[in-house]
């Protein structure tokens, strides 16, 4: 059976991890490559790097990061953050990235999804969607949830799939940081609607939250950052609980 995937997410700025990390064995907790290697040894199925570098050297630093990761890590990884054009994606693909994740650039220019899928294949194109509830509607947000758009979340995801998205990374900004669990209602709705893999993000605080998201929504993967970085959840423990709950995971 196809296994459900567990995906740690690393925020990176100028080649260094941004959020605090509380791993005991790391020589350098700010080194994304060492952290990534550690996660791959723990049994992470995939990694996401979110690069928030804002300098003119951004593409170059991202390419260097991707090359270092691809040299040393034997699991797939996605890189996102500030990818605006085909040339960005091309440079990252040639540096060894398995997938790229696009967020704001796709909202501003949806045809970018078509172009990327045509140039590199749908499997390379992850559309990241940040959503927040306004009134009784889920609305797509940009800039880390600060800027509301006019797009309704489900409509946008359906459009992204039809344009060539190969995977959806859906982050609930209402749940993100709360450690109160994933937004299972919305995730189930999205997962039942699209025919491409869905990664759940935002709200993981306990092992039970991962059990819940897989059992209640049947999403393909679950992503988290701080619970892994601070060692609150260890991936081998998480996977053994998922297995006890008859959720297929990679041993």
């Amino acid at each position: 059976m196809l296994a459900k995937r567990i995906i740690p997410c690393l925020d990176v700025k100028n080649g260094r991890t941004v959020k605090g990390v509380n791993f005991v064995d790391l020589r350098d907790a700010g080194d994304p490559v060492e952290l990534a290697w550690n996660y791959s040894q723990q049994g992470a199925d995939e990694l996401v790097f979110l690069d928030i570098t804002a300098t003119v050297e951004r593409r170059k630093t991202m390419v260097e990061l991707v090359k270092s990761v691809a040299r040393q890590i034997n699991i797939p990884f996605t890189i996102g953050g500030g990818i605006n054009e085909i040339a960005d994606a091309d440079a990252l693909l040639n540096a060894g990235a398995d997938k790229i994740s696009i967020n704001s650039a796709a909202v501003r220019n949806p045809a970018l999804i078509d172009e990327l899928a045509k140039a590199f294949g749908v499997q390379f194109v992850v559309i990241a969607v940040d959503t927040r509830v306004i009134g009784d509607k889920n609305i797509v947000h940009l800039n880390g949830g600060r800027l509301a758009t006019e797009k309704q979340t489900l409509d946008w995801i359906i459009e992204a799939e039809s344009r060539g998205a190969g995977e959806i990374l859906l982050t609930s900004m209402d749940h993100d940081g709360t450690k109160a669990g994933f937004d299972n209602g919305l995730l189930k709705l999205v997962n039942d609607t699209v025919n491409i893999p869905v990664i759940a993000s935002g709200g993981a605080g306990s092992v039970q939250h991962f059990v819940d998201v897989f059992q209640k929504t049947n999403v393909d993967a679950a992503l988290a950052a701080s619970v892994f970085h601070y060692g609150e959840i260890l991936i081998p423990d998480l996977k053994s609980v998922l297995r006890e709950n008859n959720i297929e995971v990679r041993v």
Partner: peptide
């Protein structure tokens, strides 16, 4: 072939 609840591309770790 298209089959409900099976997504394409087949993406991830399989036995």
């Amino acid at each position: 072939p298209h089959k409900n609840s099976f997504k394409v591309p087949h993406t991830g770790w399989n036995q």
